[in-house]
Design a binder for these strands. Sequence first.
DNA 1: TTTTTTGCAAAAGGTTTGCAACACG
DNA 2: CGTGTTGCAAACCTTTTGCAAAAAA
Lengths: 140, 140
Amino acid sequence: MVHNHDLENILKINGFKITPTRLAILKVFSHDCEPINAEFIFKKLKKEKVNIVTIYRTLTSFENVGILKHVDLQKDSAYYELSGHHHHHIICTDCGMVEGFEVCDIDNLTDKVLKNSNKFNIITKHSLELFGLCKKCVIK
Amino acid sequence: MVHNHDLENILKINGFKITPTRLAILKVFSHDCEPINAEFIFKKLKKEKVNIVTIYRTLTSFENVGILKHVDLQKDSAYYELSGHHHHHIICTDCGMVEGFEVCDIDNLTDKVLKNSNKFNIITKHSLELFGLCKKCVIK
DNA sequence: TTTTTTGCAAAAGGTTTGCAACACG
DNA sequence: CGTGTTGCAAACCTTTTGCAAAAAA
């Protein structure tokens, strides 16, 4: 269970003023563990009448300080998730369902790649997402 | 060296009619081995006065039949490359420079992931791109 | 009160669509 | 000649920007 004062702390620590809108957006992320986009948050906060421009601005600022991580699902809009533990995703190319996974031998790969590269010697981040068909969509 | 009749063959094999525009676009891809976007092709074919809408349509249809592969460089437009041999990219987050690499232990990873997944059992494709700073941008 | 934050309207940027003219085979 | 392809204009959709009003500290 996430308490409101935890969320307020996240904002404070990152130098943000505490506003109802920011708390509401953070709360959406702490409820839904899957990557979500601006539109999703907008609909979830329909009652609160949060402007979608504010959501875009908030997402960007949260990403800048590292509260959120941009996830590349190869969909047509930008998806974000709380940047807690390092993980990746499997995305169903039929229904869009997303599942996370932890396995990631990226350090090993990065070493090999950098040894063979003559243009790079620093890797700062990586994308690694799997795409496939979920069990429901396979039997369709 | 790529001959014109090779390009014509690619079109024929994939059920396309042979048109100057399609040949020109294919030629751009066979010259530039890095992933490119619609705008890049548009500029390269300035003299031929190819409409950018046609370029978008061609890119989509080439991707559909597998001539081209969409590459996710986390830039603001769609990049494509000839879908020849399997490889991935390192992208400089400062200057945008792209270098390819072949190392890819994805089968191993896929096996591990599917063993732990209860929602998926088929993986059809994957994204794997590294982001970092190229040697030029490091010393800036 | 001072500085951020928000909302609104409008713009921007990449991409898609409808339709008529054109051209490949 | 018939169907697939192209150009043009306009639409679309997500995201960004400018500016004034509102709210946080």
